[in-house]
Amino acid sequence: MLHQLKGRFGAPVAMAIVGLVGIWLVVMVVLPQWQMIAYSFHPNLLPAEIGGPKDHWSLTNYATLFDNRIHLAIFFKTLWSSVLVTGLTLLVSYPIAYYLAKVATPGQAALCLLLLVIPFWINEILRTFSWFILLAFRGPLNELLLALGLIDRPIRFLSGDGGVLVGMVYAYILFMVFPLYNAIESLDGNQIRAARDLGAGSVRTHWRVVIPHAKPGIATGCIMTFMLAAGSYAVPALLGSPGSRWFTQIIYNWFFEGGDWNQGAAYAFLLLVLCIGFMSLVMRLFKVGLADIAR
């Protein structure tokens, strides 16, 4: 790598590039992370006590989570809900991606992609807030359902997890659609035709031919969606009810309301471990490697 750079730009420029990248990595990525990890293994102390006898390595911050039933429940609920969001997003995105990749004409595909992307030009908070309006007790969706005579009285969409799930599926759909689209797009159309020709109906054609081919794309999409969902703050904060607290909200509280950065860092680190664990699980389940995902 360095050799190639030297060959192309000469030694001074090559060293400068590598040096800058190195500094960026160390200063912007490694050091802050290390700082957070270090925080998480130290007790929360008054400024005067830092460096004193009480300032020692400890696991108490991590133990807190396992001692606090409510926090632990929210931790696992976040895990479960994120899995649910990932599954729902996959369910919604697969038909869209398949349509874009194999059914639509280039014109239709371009229009469809544009329609999918336009809402993402608006800030996530605003988009989420518009869902808050749509799903409100006296909001347009309830009005519409009432007008159509499908319901007798308004539904409280925003109590429970429904609002959060809808909001997240909507917020992360592109992160699922694009990897899926890329994967399905590379499938030879004759494979689908061959399956049909050999007698397979559309369900079997998808199950046996399209989905196995799209596996790396599905894995990529699932990992991205899960990470974003598990680490989401805005959607649960806006669309959540008291019963649907997200683990990120607890972390936020430790940092900015409890003022206990050390405790917050430990929680954040546990969430990171959870995400990495999920990612490796998905990769093993789908039998894909990092190289497949990077494609």
């Binding site: 494979q191 035709r193 061959a194 020709d197 050999l198 046996r208 081919h213």
Partner: peptide, 19 residues
């Protein structure tokens, strides 16, 4: 429909299922 016809096709690129 295609999947109910008594025909079978051999495609130009064969379209074997590689997986």
């Amino acid at each position: 429909p295609v999947n109910r016809r008594p025909t079978a096709m051999i495609f130009q690129n064969l379209a074997l299922f590689p997986l």
